[in-house]
Amino acid sequence: MIAIEKLIKAFGRKPVLKGIDLSVPAGQSVALFGPNGAGKTTLIRIIAGLSKHTSGSVKLGGQEVQQAGHGLRRHIGFVSHNPLLYDSLTAEENLIFFGRLYEVPELSQRINVVLDRVGLLHRRKDLVRTFSRGMIQRLTIARSILHNPPILLLDEPDTGLDQQAADMLRGLLLDIGASDRTVLLTTHNLERGLEWADRALILNGGKIRYDSLTDNLTPAEFRQVYTDVVATVPTIGKEPASS
């Protein structure tokens, strides 16, 4: 579903992604870990079509992201660091707006379904301005799944969520697995990411340093692996000689 080859991204002379190869089959959910500045957000933005890459190839469902028309964006749901919501509109109005942009059929029913799913149905007539951070994050997630996208890109979706909301999100992601949705998410919470995803990646120094299925990985093992990977490869600066 997601096929990335030899992806390089540089800002000016400063390389951020130094050759990423990644293939994610349909229905898989992948957690992307890495320290700040490792390039996680850059990678997600490139897949989402929000940033242009310097060289290499990024394909979604066989279509090159930069060459494909805007129709491809219909297949992507996106949660970024920004909520992408409007303060002066109600929760429902926000979803109506995005529903219209994505041409969601039977919109009002669908809005009720997703609002119910994130536990905000009772607040649908309230202005987003009156929402707490966690509620905004829930609504952001509702917005990202409104058009039922086959690909979901979640950049730190658990920010600002309390435990209950995090469980809700996990429930959503498990649903997603059942409905063949491909998920790529980033998080700083190792245990949570491991629990939510089928596959774990560690990005550091602009390259993928670790790639494994999460089935037989215990949180303790993974924490050790993560510490080792992050410690051996400097995030910034020269490549180690061995690579």
């Binding site: 989402a48 079509g49 929000l50 805007h70 129709g71 491809l72 964006r73 219909r74 992507i76 996106f78 970024s80 660091h81 920004n82 909520p83 992408l84 919501l85 409007y86 303060d87 995005f98 942009l101 994505y102 041409e103 917005r143």
Partner: peptide, 15 residues
């Protein structure tokens, strides 16, 4: 300011 421009840019339509 609200970073909502991204949401518009992501929408499946000619910009």
């Amino acid at each position: 300011d609200r970073g909502s421009m991204e949401g518009l840019l992501m929408a499946p339509m000619d910009r």
